[in-house]
Design a protein around this nucleic acid. Structure first.
Lengths: 109, 109
DNA sequence: ATTCATGTTCGCAAAATTACGAATAATTCT
DNA sequence: AGAATTATTCGTAATTTTGCGAACATGAAT
């Protein structure tokens, strides 16, 4: 009856999800998780795509807040953004816990 | 040096994330989580968008495996797909746990 | 058989995404 | 100052996504 209001939390969760919604970006996140050294060149070296494209994917992840980059001339060091990573983790966890499969009154019974 | 192989698991995680990467679809998932009755009409009634668009979003969620729909003439009942929901939950949880903020050797220190 | 109620599919347009090579900063090294 | 290294930005093209109204399909009720 009354229309749904899309909340800022839902917007934020969708933003995180969208940033994670590409195999290459998932691979980048996994790669960053395994490494201490996170220079752009290290990431590019390991991906079979042009550096311009790598840069775009990194921007996407950075704009969503999942990673951060710091300039260490002449290189750029990338890493997970710990604060937002933690937020994303909690938002996804809450999302998956809220939903019905674990409830008794699920419509999926 | 050696190129990254994008794994099937990463592909699947990205697929889930992509489906969740839109505020309306997050709202739909939340709505499904709160309801026993999950008819198309209930969902459409509550969203400020055309039914064709609602149907598209539901298809997107269904194709990704996050929800399922059963025909109950003349209505269609939608709900979370419990099996895949559980898979998605675990994949996201593993992703967020793997990554560095909780590690000592994080590049984000 | 017609009508009604419910959703999906079609056809289209606008916008966003993905990808690349070339050009452009920015900083160090010679 | 000039060359070299590193990464971003620009310009472009192809594809995908998002959204709508209209048309269509399906089964129920008259």
């Amino acid at each position: 009856m009354s229309k749904i209001e899309i909340t800022p939390v839902q917007e934020r969760l969708a933003r995180f999800a969208k940033a994670m919604g590409h195999p290459t970006r998932i691979a980048i996140l996994h790669f960053l998780a395994q490494r201490n050294e996170c220079f752009f060149g290290d990431i590019h070296e390991v991906l079979p795509i042009a550096k311009a494209t790598v840069s775009q994917h990194l921007s996407e992840l950075k704009d969503a807040g999942l990673i951060q980059g710091t300039i260490e001339p002449p290189k750029v060091k990338y890493c997970i953004n710990p604060d937002n990573w933690s937020v994303a983790k909690q938002l996804f966890a809450k999302m998956f816990d809220d939903c019905c499969p674990s409830k008794k009154n699920s419509c999926c019974s």
